[in-house]
Design a protein around this nucleic acid. Sequence first.
DNA 1: CAGTGGTCTAGACCACCGC
DNA 2: CGGTGGTCTAGACCACTGG
Lengths: 250, 250
Amino acid sequence: MQQSSQFTADVEPSIPGLSRYAELATDLRARILRGQWEPGQALTAEAELARAYGVALGTIRQAIALLVDQGLLERRHGKGTFVKAGLGGASMLRFFRFRHADSSQAPTSRILNRKRIPADAATSQALTIPENAPVLALERLRSIAGQPCLLETIMLPLPLFEPLASSDPAAWGDLLYPEYQRRCGVVVHQAEDQLSFDTLGASNARRLGLTKGHPCVRVRRRAYDLTGRCVELRITLGDAFDFEYTAHVR
Amino acid sequence: MQQSSQFTADVEPSIPGLSRYAELATDLRARILRGQWEPGQALTAEAELARAYGVALGTIRQAIALLVDQGLLERRHGKGTFVKAGLGGASMLRFFRFRHADSSQAPTSRILNRKRIPADAATSQALTIPENAPVLALERLRSIAGQPCLLETIMLPLPLFEPLASSDPAAWGDLLYPEYQRRCGVVVHQAEDQLSFDTLGASNARRLGLTKGHPCVRVRRRAYDLTGRCVELRITLGDAFDFEYTAHVR
DNA sequence: CAGTGGTCTAGACCACCGC
DNA sequence: CGGTGGTCTAGACCACTGG
């Protein structure tokens, strides 16, 4: 009898030169990106997947292990295997230690500016969109205990982020990534931060409560969704004397 | 018949609450630290180990996998499983991009200063030795294409590094970690870098060919051997405007 | 060619979770 | 309790390495 469950994989043709578990991982990844399982949701059980694909348990487990250390899946003993939820959004703080911060105080954030503009060269390249394509530009000030500490310029491709162009910024939370997900269905899954040093111009210095020419750290972040598409370009400026970062070398 | 190969493990008592492969990993780790296999040398083959320990192949493979992603072992298909050799030593460059450097030019290094001193508080704490215990203090200038770029202050515990206190620094190579290994038997296996920002004092600025008060990055490195003991404290200073670092967030 | 790690199977039983 | 992932076995065969 022909089984016709929507979850049964159309067994893909064996790809020569690729191990069985690598094929399975590729197929699972495709199904996840296709949205068959939402972020935060549990995958079909290993045993069931093994049956569906017609492989041994160990093989499907190897495939899952691959996606786990690619950061796409997460195992929870006794509960299931879950599609990873997006980044929280507080990750910019890890580069800075703020002297005046009493323990792990949550930063507040305020949108200073929001406008639609055509993408400049750097933005279009980072977001892989045509030059002059429309983007939403945000300027945002983050503070801890009332002290301004980080100034951010954020570029978001339109029309993907259209909901953010029309809704009231005052209604947004202090973290942006959850808003991306809630309002635009965009899940930020990983990011790449490029750090360098610079000095502040007059207007940026004023907004951070510092003097013109003050040394600052510049974090250029590109954030990516599950499919690997770059969905955000963000430039963050902060006082260089607040900067501290630990890296492990192996 | 009793087998008496020197490699046969005295089968350790099963540790309750710990999986078999975790036990095996612990035992293998101990044997490696004990020096049963030197860094760079191949481990006994998986099949042989499985026989010796009286477990299935898959179990010993899981144990080895643990040590591999702890960075202690390295597998090479068709050749064997090897104890990881130490760090090369050029790793400080990864924080800096030097504009004048023609591609990946190797840096040269010169010892400016070498003396025995009693450990100050910070040094003794980092190296976990008593305060005022003897250390070897090195000052070292690294250059690319004749341009001074990094100034380092290095603290090494004595008597472990005694060979470096007596030999001629001119005979040392441009990388220190290989010298640690060759002359003192110390293998640097991993390190932790703590980055922060500062401005140069007059004397340091002079040695780097910069002006007093110039912005600089300060990298405080603690280097560890295979056993996890801290064997080096190093403070590196470099021009902040040459600094660039990329971090991945997941 | 012999020796190594890499893949895969078809089972068994254990440990954790939540109802 | 049933369902999940975690551990372990005892094999088979494949793929890479080097003499």
